[in-house]
Design a protein around this nucleic acid. Sequence first.
DNA 1: CTGAAAGCGCTAACAC
DNA 2: GTGTTAGCGCTTTCAG
Lengths: 331, 331
Amino acid sequence: MADIARMAGVSISTVSRALAGNPLIPKALRDHIVEIAQTHGYVVNQSARSLRLRKTDTIGVIIPLAHEAGQLISDPFFLEMVGRLADEITRRGYSVLLNKVIVNETGWLERIIQSHRADGLLLIGQSNQHEALNTVSDTYRPMVVWGARLPGQRYCAVGSDNVEGGRVAVAHLAANGRARIAFLGETDAPEAIQRFEGYKKGLAEAGLAFDPTLVVPTPYTAGEAREAMATFLATGVPFDAVFAFSDVVALAAIDALKAAGRTVPGDVAVVGFDDVVQAQHSTPPLTTVRQDLAFGARAMVDLLLRRMAGEDAPSTLAPVELIVRGSSVAS
Amino acid sequence: MADIARMAGVSISTVSRALAGNPLIPKALRDHIVEIAQTHGYVVNQSARSLRLRKTDTIGVIIPLAHEAGQLISDPFFLEMVGRLADEITRRGYSVLLNKVIVNETGWLERIIQSHRADGLLLIGQSNQHEALNTVSDTYRPMVVWGARLPGQRYCAVGSDNVEGGRVAVAHLAANGRARIAFLGETDAPEAIQRFEGYKKGLAEAGLAFDPTLVVPTPYTAGEAREAMATFLATGVPFDAVFAFSDVVALAAIDALKAAGRTVPGDVAVVGFDDVVQAQHSTPPLTTVRQDLAFGARAMVDLLLRRMAGEDAPSTLAPVELIVRGSSVAS
DNA sequence: CTGAAAGCGCTAACAC
DNA sequence: GTGTTAGCGCTTTCAG
């Protein structure tokens, strides 16, 4: 910047003002300075600017992983969410700092905040960190979390109506004559628990008894889910439908069912959750509870910017919608 | 940091050294200082650190978009690449700055570099910016580009063997008795051009004549690709196979073919390129030329780090592999 | 309207 | 071993 100043024959502060478009500097001079900066490929150093201004024009997107390793790439839901958030953030003139963190040691979030690399934080998923998030949010405002609405929640959350999603999935299966509906999923994370609640609610509304033998604890990844389904099949417990808490799990279940000689939806109807891209391309196409990620991503960024501006933006529920395809009803 | 210094009863530079693990400070004192910093939630301000050290411990991942708008989310290939790069970068202790840029105005890359927000740059795709990249690379070393190897290329590129991929796809179709093989794709970007070359090479090797009426200019997105295929069908030009330059286009083509009453692979055999996740879940499953993105991402990050260290890392070709599934051969 | 000067929070000579 | 000090490159009072 000093160089530019010398070249333009003005002081360094004039250059700073000109480059910032400060109207105190006459337009002619401003343009001249901008031009000379441009021809010399000069761009303001963001580290220095951030230090001085105490802001980075950057939003941190954090993917909290509870169980170590778990490659980011594996989950199409995360990936799609990252893409949509990146779009929204970029559109508003901010940069995206992507942050994959293993949330084992306490203080992981505080560390990210204190490093001052971002003006605001977006977490994709609350993992098992509900209390940590509550604590942090008491002192740090510019943060929005994708995840479940929980009682006593003090942080700003945007998430789908998981209970309703589970309920509507089961209602659909019951309405099509299914009576023994298995639940496939983990019940450790809040979102999973809510979908499980919706599952039980749906059963109750349909006049079906809840049968614990139909609950199949199933990990998040395709490989493990396929195994879990195979193991469940081996138990011989009779069932005619599956509600899986994610599409990845549902698609894996379909694979396992086919491998075991069961037809879908003939022998077993399957409903998933998310509506990832491959849901519509599977065989049969997957009936699923669609999460509106476009809405969710927009809402998260909107709320975050409001919080960064000092407002107190509220938590928001994103609508879900049952998408009926071939995996749950004969075509 | 001044606060921590006061609390520890030492000078500010001692704190800096202690937090950096400098062995000049006795271990006991170091631990003590680290502890007091921790309990007070103190973390080094990265803006200040970056300014002073002239490094950010951040790697910029850039998605260059030639044709405006084009949502990031739409292309599963980009998304998977971002995920894999993020994994590799994080694993090496760097942060990821995600950057979606519309490459319309010249100097876009110089601007990113000069802003000094990243210590190195990874571009996903060279778009139509071959010359711009060449120019920049003469003065800026820490940059690696995913894309085609091109004659007179002065920047470091990692990419699949596109020609070989196209060749092998066509060879496979020809070996299965197909004689009129259409090419679906744009031929503006280098990678697309190379796949098209491979297509012609494959035809030649199989003793098939190249027929320009079988070349169908097809945009990248699913919707437009479906339309392009439909339009091509309407022309009545006879064909019994399709080689599409991406899976997204291939899957869209299958949709359009089915809608027009053609069977796959009966009437028309289809081969794609990429092996995105949904390729294995389509009906029929898609035969495709698999790009080894795990390899590619690792190579890109490796090469970049070497370049950041001052070495002069060479361009690299990633192997491709034909994955035969149901869309090209009767099961 | 423009320039001089202070200082954002940190690291690393350079003393002691 | 530890403290003093000089900047890293920028923005912005405060004077003129």
